[in-house]
């Protein structure tokens, strides 16, 4: 067994980043370091949105995005599912209906299990219905049409969209705005952020979505991981800065090292 050509830096990057994240997680778990996450207005607004739906007697709609769990959108989907667990417990507490719509067949059983378990944890297993979590279509715009239909027919009061989104983002956000729903979105899909910012009440931008699970649960392990991420990001910034300056001066040592 030998390292593939061009993968030496990759291996060391994985090892160093992994070590930093694990050390951060352990320190946080042991109580030696507790990273703080600044206030995220978008997440604070989730409870307000569920509360408003309760007052109006209308359902909450939740979409974990249209990304899968087996590609690069997976971290966003998992982050969205973490928020789903929190939102489901909130709806159980307030006795408000939640409608979860799904585009990816792979995500469907996960979402169903999360909602079922969250109701169970909140002591309200009776609230779980067959149509609480609905698979609509794996075809992007058929799914979008289904979601827009549900928003209009059920006159939802809160629209929560957390995960990876593509061109349907604005369709959802405008349909939500048309029925007067309070809207909170979160995504790391850069191209869709302007649409959410323009049409929603609150938007979690990029990494804020990844921090959502830690922020809501205040779990030490997750907080440690988020803190370590910032350390890795700082190191990356230094490498980029030094590498760019050296490359400008025709010194390619960092560039050569990274391509090893």
């Amino acid at each position: 067994m030998t390292i593939m050509a061009g993968r030496v830096t990759f291996l060391f990057t994985v090892l160093i980043m992994g070590a930093i994240v694990l050390i951060g997680v352990n320190m946080s778990q042991a109580g030696k370091w507790t990273p703080k996450i600044r206030r995220l207005a978008g997440l604070d607004a989730v409870e307000e949105a569920v509360g408003r739906a309760t007052e109006m007697g209308a359902p909450v709609h939740f979409s974990p995005g249209i990304g899968n769990i087996s590609d690069d959108s997976a971290p966003q989907t998992f982050a969205g599912l973490e928020v789903l667990a929190y939102v489901t417990e909130l709806t159980a507490k307030y006795n408000t209906e939640i409608i979860v719509t799904i585009r990816q067949p792979n995500v469907f059983p996960l979402a169903q299990e999360i909602v079922r378990q969250s109701y169970l944890a909140a002591g309200r297993p009776d609230m779980f219905q067959e149509d609480t979590v609905q698979f609509l279509s794996s075809e992007q715009f058929a799914y979008a049409a289904g979601v827009m239909g549900i928003m209009n027919r059920r006159r939802i009061a809160a629209n929560l969209m957390m995960g990876a989104f593509w061109a349907e983002s604005l369709l959802f956000a405008e349909a939500g705005a048309q029925v007067g729903a309070i809207q909170v979105a979160g995504t790391a899909a850069m191209a869709q952020l302007p649409f959410f910012v323009a049409a929603c009440d609150y938007t979690l931008i990029g990494e804020e979505l990844y921090a959502a699970g830690a922020y809501l649960s205040q779990d030490k392990v997750k907080l440690g991981s988020i803190g370590s991420q910032d350390i890795v990001k700082g190191i990356t910034m230094v490498i980029i800065l030094v590498g760019s300056l050296l490359a400008t001066a025709d010194i390619t040592i960092i560039k050569d090292l990274l391509s090893k």
């Binding site: 971290p75 599912l81 299990e113 999360i114 699970g213 392990v221 997750k222 991981s225 890795v232 990356t236």
Partner: peptide
């Protein structure tokens, strides 16, 4: 980087939110 840290947590079983409950 955020995706890497999330993936690492899932790989090592630190992150279990997606399993429900």
């Amino acid at each position: 980087i955020g995706g890497f840290a999330t993936s690492l947590r899932i790989l090592l079983g630190i992150e279990r939110g997606h399993l429900g409950g």
